[in-house]
Amino acid sequence: MKKIRFIAPIVILMIFALTAGGCGSSGGDNKTAEKYPTKPINYVIAFNAGGQSDIEARRQQPVLEKTLGQPITISYKPGGGGAVAWAELVNQKPDGYYMAGFNIPHIILQPLERKDSGYKTDQINPVAIFQKTIVGLAVPKNSPYNTLEDFINAAKAKPGSITIGGSGTNTGPHLYTLLLEKEAGIKLQYVPFTGAAPATQALLGGHTVAMAGNSDDLVKYPDKIKVLGMASPERFKALPDAPTMKEQGYDIQVSVDRGVAVPPGTDPAIVKQLEEAFMKIANDETIKAQMLKEGFEPVAMNAEQSRKYIEERTKVFTEIFNSLGQTQK
């Protein structure tokens, strides 16, 4: 019993500390943005730990902490191709302490194709867009196709017999395939994989003829694959030898853009502060160089530009989506 008497005050203290901590970290109703941030900020990753979004957030974390003066807590809410995290994001309190990474075209295509995605594209309140990957067409080094033209001719000769792998359904690579089919008037067999790694594996193993992949994956295998066409307006800096689709007469532009967003209705002053912190990273020369080397195109779009970009892309994608006859399931 003696022991217990000794422990009791400590326990009571702990209850106080814990409950007080619990309330304190949540009680901050919309205070003025001047004092923001006064507590750690949650940065939610919509994909698994160790994925590209995670790595990017981990790179930003120390810089954000320095600029904002508060710890940044990174946590993961993977599932549904990101949809679960975004559905959660739009229902959070707009106090500036909850932000989530987002991807285009995911946030546009998911609400288009699913009834229950849990959020609408215009509810995603962007702070900044900081990087993009370009979708490109790749074949193995030993493939008989050396140019986009070879590939398209082969597909014309035997419609539907050429397999093209990519990560997921209604994703950047899938969209690219659909557009290529439409522009070139060919029929391909798209095979969706559960991610970029299995799609690459199937390509290298010769199980699929070609792959629509993101530039960060395409740069990883310079001695194993040939890149036949990048869906960007200009040549991609990390792959200077790969021609663009446009150069070869097909006006196809598909990229996957990454940014960060806060719940709708967040105080513009808070958005401004976060935006500045992210812009600082986006304009950092060392980080930009790192990104390029890893196969990303660094971009620096602020909140306003990001919003306009999302609106513009939504229009484009909705049109493509409808014209290709993909309807909501």
């Binding site: 993977p78 549904g80 949809a83 559905a87 699913r114 229950d116 995605s117 359904t169």
Partner: peptide
């Protein structure tokens, strides 16, 4: 349960967006 890997259908989600994750 969740989004079908091919086709992108919602399966057995019972209207909960969380079930998209499987």
């Amino acid at each position: 349960v969740g989004i079908s890997p091919i086709g992108g259908d919602m399966r057995f989600t019972f209207g909960f967006y969380q079930f998209q994750a499987g």
